[in-house]
Structures are given as C-alpha cells and as structure tokens.
Design a protein around this nucleic acid. Structure first.
Lengths: 199, 199
DNA sequence: TTTAAAATCTAACACTGTTAGGCAAAGTTA
DNA sequence: TAACTTTGCCTAACAGTGTTAGATTTTAAA
C-alpha cells in the first residue's frame, strides 16, 4: 500500500519539524529556554507527542549534535576542494570549521558544550578582568619596544588564551585524560607564542 | 552592642555556607543538578531563606564566578614569583591558569561556560568523529615521513583544535566582536602550527 | 511582660520533563 | 455493514524546578 509510505513520510516530516523547531527556539531564546511544551506549540501538537519521535529531550539534542557533525563534515569537504596543496587544504578546512561555528552558532554550542553566561557581567566587576590584565601586562613587557602597541599585544594575548582555554575546554568536556599529550601541547603552544613575540 | 557584630558574623557565615554548599553540589552532581532546595537542605534551612542572602540563583553563580576570578588571580600572582625573567613569569602564569582550571574544575566551568554534555556519546556515533578524522589525515599528509607517528600527529591535531576551538569559545561566550583581531589570531595560529609541522 | 522586629517556615504559583490513561478517528477483519 | 484493533493525540497528573507572599515562630527592645 502506498498510504503506508505516505504516512511514514508524514511521520518523518514531524520528526524533522521537531528538530527544526528546537533549533529555532534556541536561535530565538537560547538553549536554556528550550522546553518540550514550546516545541510542541511550534509544531501544533501537545508535548507528549514528541515522545513518540524521541525518547526524551536529551535525544533531541543528541540528534541535533549528530546533524551538526554531518553538516560540519560537508562544509570541510567542500573547503578541501578549494585548494590543491595539502597545506592549503588543511588551512581551508580549519577556516571552514571556524566559519561553521559562527554560521551555525547554536549547533556548535550544543556540539561542544559552549554556554553563554555572565555576558554582561564582564564589564561590571573589576575582579573579572584582573587575570587578563596580569597576563596582558606581562606580554607587553616581553614585547620588543618597536612593536609594542595595543593591537599587537591584544593579538598575542588572545592567541595565548585561545590555546590554553581551548585545550582546557576539550579536556573538561571530553575528558581525554591523555596527560602526556596535554603537557606537550600546552608547553609547545606557550613557548611557541613566546618565541613568536620575541623574534 | 557586640551582639550586633556577632549576628552580622553569623549572617556572613550562612552566606558563605550557601556558596560552599552550591560548590559541593556541583562537585558531586554537576551544575545542572544544582537547585535552591538542595542548597537549603545542605545548610539546614528552607529554600526561601537563601533569597535573603542572594537575589536569585543566578546571583549565587555570579558570586562564585567572582570568587573564581579572585582565586585565579592569586594563583597567578604566586606563580609569577617563581621566576625572575618575564618570559618565565608569563609561562608560569599560564601554567597556573591551566592548573587552576583542573584544580577548581567547577569554578572554571561556571566562569567560562564550559558544559559537559554528550560525554559518552562520542565513541558511539561515527558521524561525530568524521571531522576529526579528516583533519587528522590531512595533518598526517603534510607531516614529514621521518616523524610521522600517531603521537606526533595527535599532538599537532590537538594544538590546532585548541587554538581554533578556544578562539571560537571566547567569541561565543564573550561576544568580543573584534573581527580584525580574530582573523589575524586565527591565521597566525594556523599558519604557525603548519610551519611547525613542516620544518 | 508586653511590643516590635527579625528570622524562618509553609503554601502557593507558574514553570519544567515525563508518564499513564482515555477518547476518538482510522484501518482491519468477519 | 458491524465489530474489533490499532493508531494518533489529548488531558491530567507526578515530581521536580525558581521564586514570592503571608503566616508563624523566635529574638530583641521597651
């Protein structure tokens, strides 16, 4: 019977509707505001219906995570074609990764557990900026006088911070627990940036 | 009256109790499991009492964030004393930052919005590992044959990923919106690592 | 000892994820 | 067509969440 197929297709449709409704809510109000009843409202159903498509709320997030990884891989594959040398391809793939994170900000957040809290608080409290200032000043100190300007030091500061914070985040979310590699990556990165400042 | 002071001290005590109870719960069950009633249970009060010390749940998290930054600054200051050269001091401060993140994992999480989701899911789904594999293979390709071993490529992969993911996280949580600096940091970092692989 | 104030509680509201049970429409079989 | 089964979807509920209002008890001041 063809009606079976049609029904199957309708079911698949609402499954996709649930996913895109969830993503829409995240885009509009953030992941914290996502609720089963809100999703149900968007697709003109009541909340319990969702449980016929997904085991629970977490399963929705997991599926969106999976979709995110698939989309990211596609983007990277396309980027890879833009260059012929392996070095160029690698760089293009990382740029694709970068662009994906901002083009699909909400997907990236759910994929890698990046929350947005304390958004406005940063400017308010002086305690918050002290560690940054300490590092900033020290970087300024080791920067040769001829290129000692705010923009340069900012750049170096963020490079430092990115490596260290990135490595920490990866460890905290994925618990790699590969102690040796961490140590070496960290030391590599830090001394690398320090050298790039000095010469 | 000295009793006023004593009462003041008691109030300050329960304020600190609320904070340390919250941190304890986060350590035991994670931030998601933190609730006002659980905090109240730990300090032998009922939930509404907490609102005489903090405006709401978010205010507790904000205060813990502040405490985190203060503690981090202290650690970094101490680390700074361990070296005499500015380069050594800078490295020591970043190491202190690194160590802080793991010694006070829960504080770091609340400070920088690092969540732990999809912990176990990573091994299950092949879609999840495809982007990583693509990059890994490409790094292997540009690695000179004499040092082409798993450990070396792992190290380079994590160095790459750390910078890029770190920079993204910083942007997503703090919305710096300093386009030029981002671009330069990213390009600096990527080409830097690529060069470090090739020579 | 009475009165004022402070500390603390209970009860409730509106929300959350999730489950159980029922009702009505649709499909299947006799 | 009639009876029966399945499916789709809903309402109601449970236990939990953050938060507030109001009553109640405890403490301090007169």
């Amino acid at each position: 019977m063809a009606s079976k197929d049609r029904i199957q297709k309708l079911k698949e449709d609402t499954r996709l509707n649930i996913l895109s409704a969830s993503l829409d809510i995240a885009k509009e109000e953030g992941w914290a505001a996502l609720s089963m009843r809100k999703i149900a409202d968007k697709i003109d159903y009541t909340a319990p219906v969702i449980y016929e498509y997904f085991a629970n709320k977490d399963a929705i997030l997991r599926e969106l995570t999976r979709i995110g990884y698939v989309k990211l891989a596609t983007r990277m594959e396309e980027a890879c074609k833009l260059s012929t040398t392996p070095e160029g391809q690698l760089e293009a793939m990382w740029l694709a990764y970068w662009n994906f994170a901002f083009a699909y900000k909400e997907l990236y957040q759910v994929m890698y557990g990046v929350e947005m809290n304390c958004c406005t608080a940063l400017n308010e409290c002086p305690d918050y900026s002290k560690p940054m200032n300490m590092l900033w000043d020290k970087i300024e100190e080791i920067t040769p006088p001829e290129r000692r300007n705010e923009e340069y030091i900012d750049r170096k500061y963020y490079t430092f911070w990115s490596v260290v914070h990135g490595l920490i985040s990866i460890n905290l979310t994925n618990q790699l627990s590969r102690e040796e590699i961490n140590r070496e990556v960290l030391r590599d990165a830090i001394t690398g940036v320090i050298n790039s400042i000095k010469n």
